[in-house]
Simulated assay, not measured.
Amino acid sequence: MVIVQEADFDAAQLLAGLRQRCAGTAGAVVTFTGYVRDYAQDAATQSLFLEHYPGMCEREIEALCNTAQSRWDVQECLVVHRVGELRNAEQIVFVAAASAHRGDAFKACEFIIDALKTRAPFWKRETLASGERFWVRQRESDASKTSQWDHPPAT
């Protein structure tokens, strides 16, 4: 399930719904909640404005969830991502993966959140306390982390 919305979300309610949909078959649910943080090194972040490409964004996130379910034994994935103007410390994203075993749930959740940062069509504009605004660039470390999922190291 993928939801992109402006409104805040209740992580406990999302988790309860996921557990209900899995009807007791999930022995593990791993969740991740991301928050707006100070991105600027020299000035305080006031807010982060997130734009997305409607339709395409949801399809891309759904594809990430499908990939996670095909790679690991995952019963359900859930992603809720906010858009619009978000203040410092507000929730941005909720990711959950339910599985019979914790290892699969951890890997699926980590894969989804890593891939979201580089593959989902979101754009972030940061506003500093000074009023300065700028678009946040993708970090090389995020791209490198995501590419490791495509080319796992030999074991």
Rank of each mutant, 00 (worst) to 15 (best):
V74R: 03
T155R: 12
F111W: 15
N66W: 11
R119C: 04
A23E: 09
S144Q: 14
L64Q: 10
R71V: 07
A26S: 04
T118D: 13
L86S: 12
A154C: 02
A40I: 01
F122H: 04
R82Q: 08
I113M: 14
L18R: 04
E58H: 13
Y35N: 08
A143V: 12
G131E: 02
K145T: 11
H52K: 00
E76T: 01
F134L: 03
R59H: 11
R87A: 15
Y53N: 05
F111L: 15
K145D: 06
I112C: 07
A26Y: 01
G17A: 00
E51I: 01
R59W: 02
T67F: 00
A120S: 15
C22A: 06
A23L: 03
L78H: 07
V2I: 08
R71A: 04
H151L: 09
F9S: 08
R87L: 15
Q148N: 04
R139A: 14
G131V: 00
F106H: 14
T25H: 00
T127I: 08
G27T: 04
A100H: 08
T67C: 04
A108C: 07
L86F: 10
Q75S: 04
Q91M: 10
W72M: 06
T67Y: 01
G55I: 03
K145L: 09
L64I: 10
F94G: 08
L64V: 05
I92L: 15
E110F: 10
P153Q: 11
I61C: 05
N66L: 13
P121M: 11
T127D: 07
W149E: 13
Y53F: 12
D8T: 09
A68F: 11
R119L: 07
D150H: 09
A63D: 14
I92V: 15
L50Q: 00
A7Q: 14
L48E: 03
L64A: 03
S144I: 13
M1L: 05
